[in-house]
């Protein structure tokens, strides 16, 4: 029993990494921009977050720094794909390469360093006394709690505000939206930057709060898993909870297989996240509908082409 509670607790903690990034990518993709640079943005966020946490010992600065660097990376992608009309797939790949290389380049000095301060678990009074659930859900650090409410906020903005409507219509019918008076270009810029901010924060959560150290290439494909989870979540921030935590749970289960005396080469367990992601995608392409796929996703939008 305690084993299962430990695994579920770890599932929430590791699912949070992907949850932030998934929410960020959903915001960006809903506006019609496909950002395949998640892996690179996460790494930049992870490095700058760790660097600031190490050198200033201020956790707030670490998170803000990671958010800013994430936003800047988003800005690069927005400039490339919106203003310069570049192919979104290639720009995203270039961003991943840049983030991987630059974080490793600057990160050399941070390898092997340990943090003096980190995010401490803050048990929520009363709620943490609930048997089992309290232990699993309400004894985490502040970033995990914020991840509990973030998808709800984003869902609310998407579906109950005029900004959300403008964002979604930019991703569906950019030309008609423009005629209706929506500034598609501005909205796409903002969505790509804000998306980058949350992806940057997910990186900082990974290095500062989760693993508490910086390792070159430490995201190990989590950015790509995020892109798959966005599809799994049908671009809906509320389903992203399910995707991220389910994914976190399965990964933890995979990593803990030996505990249950299941003979499997330990080294191959490293593959479980990627295989699970592929199975997730397979599952939804057999079962689910991708009803929320933004119609204009990945296509360049050309304001001048209007006339």
């Amino acid at each position: 029993m305690t084993d299962i509670i430990t695994i579920l607790y770890a599932a929430i903690a590791s699912g949070t990494i992907i949850l932030y990034a998934t929410i960020g990518e959903i915001i960006t993709e809903r506006s019609g921009i496909l950002n395949l640079g998640v892996e690179g943005i996460m790494l930049m966020g992870a490095f700058f977050g760790f660097y600031l946490a190490y050198s200033t010992e201020s956790l707030l600065l670490a998170i803000i720094g990671a958010a800013v660097i994430g936003g800047l990376m988003g800005l690069i992608h927005a400039f490339m794909t919106i203003t310069l009309q570049a192919n979104q797939v290639v720009s995203g790949l270039a961003l991943t390469m840049f983030g991987t290389g630059a974080s490793a380049f600057f990160g050399v000095s941070m390898v092997g360093k340990t943090l003096k301060t980190s995010f401490e678990a803050i048990p929520i009074p009363l709620l943490n006394k609930i048997p089992v659930l309290g232990e699993i859900l309400f004894d985490h650090n502040i970033l995990v709690y914020f991840a509990f409410v973030l998808p709800v906020i984003v869902w609310f903005v998407f579906n109950r505000t005029k900004w959300g409507l403008a964002l979604r219509s930019s991703g569906e019918e950019p030309l008609s939206s423009e005629i209706m008076g929506i500034k598609v270009i501005k909205i796409r810029y903002i969505a790509t930057i804000v998306g980058g901010v949350f992806i940057g924060i997910s990186g900082a959560y990974l290095s500062v709060a989760y693993s508490k150290l910086w390792v070159e290439g430490m995201t190990a494909g989590k950015g790509w898993i995020t892109i798959a989870l966005v599809i799994f979540a049908n671009w809906n921030p509320l389903i992203a909870y399910g995707g991220a935590y389910l994914f976190g749970g399965l990964t933890q289960l995979g990593l803990n297989l030996q505990k249950f005396n299941i003979p499997f080469p330990i080294i191959l367990l490293k593959s479980t996240p990627y295989v699970f992601t592929l199975l997730f995608l397979l599952f939804i392409s057999i079962k689910g509908k991708r009803s929320n796929l933004p119609k204009a996703l990945g296509e360049s939008y050309f304001r001048e082409s209007r006339g």
């Binding site: 690069i76 490339m80 310069l84 570049a86 192919n87 290639v90 720009s91 790949l93 270039a94 961003l95 390469m97 840049f98 991987t100 290389g101 630059a102 490793a104 380049f105 070159e216």
Partner: peptide, 16 residues
């Protein structure tokens, strides 16, 4: 990693 950074910058520049 300086090589990776240079490759990414070339890709960005050509793309732009």
């Amino acid at each position: 990693s300086v090589g990776v950074v240079m490759q990414a910058l070339i890709l960005f520049a050509i793309l732009g």
